[in-house]
Simulated scan of single mutants.
Amino acid sequence: MNLTVFALTGAALVGLGVYGLIARVHMLRRIMAFNLIGSGLFLFFGAAGARGVGLDPIPQALIITGIVVALSASALAVGLVVALARSSGTACLPDEAGDT
């Protein structure tokens, strides 16, 4: 039962992240929503890898690798948003600047 709760929580995090990615205009909020999607997927994969008699090390290795890649991709994305904000004066894309 615990693994089902973890898998459903991961699915809920992915859903919230997709909503935030679609509904938000500010680029930093979109980066946070994308990270929320990744965290939900990591939780779901961890719950899926724990099913059965023993623990499977492959999903655990994929989760650890994914965390490292997500951290570096987030740092790159935040750097690009900072460069966009310095050049244009706003952290929103030009065609979406009027929306909230």
Rank of each mutant, 00 (worst) to 15 (best):
A23E: 09
E96D: 09
L80R: 08
G15K: 02
G66W: 04
A61V: 12
P59C: 09
V53P: 13
P57W: 09
I31T: 12
A61R: 15
G79H: 01
L21D: 04
L43Y: 05
G79W: 02
V81F: 03
L28D: 11
V68H: 08
V82T: 05
M27I: 13
R24E: 12
G17T: 03
I64Q: 15
V53I: 08
A75W: 06
V18L: 14
L8V: 01
L71F: 09
A47N: 08
A70G: 10
V69R: 12
I58K: 14
L28P: 10
G52E: 07
R30S: 15
S74T: 12
A23L: 04
G54L: 14
G20H: 09
A33S: 15
G79L: 02
N35K: 01
I67T: 12
A83P: 03
Q60L: 15
L93N: 07
I22W: 13
A33C: 14
A50L: 15
A48D: 05
I67L: 15
L41D: 01
A12F: 09
L41H: 04
L62V: 13
Y19E: 02
M27H: 11
L55R: 11
P57M: 06
A83C: 00
M1C: 05
G46Q: 04
L36Y: 04
F42E: 02
L71A: 14
L13V: 01
M32G: 14
G38T: 03
L13M: 07
A83D: 10
L93M: 11
V82Q: 01
M32C: 12
I22T: 13
L28F: 14
I37N: 05
V82M: 03
V81C: 00
F42W: 14
G10I: 00
I31W: 07
Q60I: 14
A75E: 00
Q60H: 04
G52N: 13
A73N: 06
L21W: 10
G40C: 06
I58G: 07
L3V: 07
G38H: 03
A50E: 08
C92P: 00
A61F: 14
L13P: 01
I22P: 05
D99N: 05
V68P: 12
G89W: 01
I67K: 14
L21G: 10
Q60S: 13
F6C: 06
S72W: 12
F44P: 05
L62P: 08
S74C: 05
R29W: 10
A33N: 11
L55I: 11
I67M: 15
I67Q: 11
M27C: 12
V82H: 06
D95E: 08
A12K: 04
M1P: 13
G89E: 05
V25D: 10
R30T: 14
A77D: 04
T4Q: 11
A47S: 09
V69E: 06
G20T: 03
I31V: 15
G89D: 02
G38L: 10
